[in-house]
């Protein structure tokens, strides 16, 4: 009896001097990513690819804050971090837990790389 049905990977790195943790978990219908500088889930955002007929190569994404700070920057960060994950994971939606002290563009770029290093999809 295998104890692991759910595949997950995690890593940790200092980004601009702030300890940053990532845990990526694969579900058949979702990729769940926790990206945190506080050690907790924080704001929970779902990033879903929209089915669009006119251009298949450039899908649109909709973001919805399920819990926490529903402000424009949350949506921008979530899209920035999760879009390529969703595309690589066969257009699966991404559930993203974000608890960031630093949401500068430089930091977000480094976080995107950190997420990629925990690829489970």
């Amino acid at each position: 009896m295998s104890t692991t049905m759910i595949k997950s990977r995690q890593t940790e790195k200092e980004i601009n001097g702030v300890r940053t943790q990532v845990v990526c978990t694969e579900f058949s219908n979702y990729i769940f990513i926790v990206l945190t500088q506080y050690g907790k889930i924080g704001t929970l955002v779902s990033v879903t690819p929209e089915s669009q007929s006119n251009d298949v190569s450039m899908p649109m994404f909709s973001t919805k804050v399920l819990m926490g700070k529903d402000e424009p920057l949350t949506h921008v960060c979530a899209k920035n971090l999760a879009t390529c994950v969703s595309q690589e994971a066969g257009n699966r939606p991404v559930l993203l837990g974000l608890a960031l002290k630093d949401s500068s563009i430089e930091a977000v770029k480094l976080m995107r790389d950190l997420i990629k290093s925990c690829q489970v999809w």
């Binding site: 692991t4 049905m5 995690q10 300890r19 845990v23 500088q37 506080y38 050690g39 002290k101």
Partner: peptide, 13 residues
């Protein structure tokens, strides 16, 4: 930086 917390830990059973 106030990051004095344990790493996230995953456990399966």
């Amino acid at each position: 930086q106030g990051g004095a917390f344990d790493a996230i830990a995953v456990h399966n059973f």
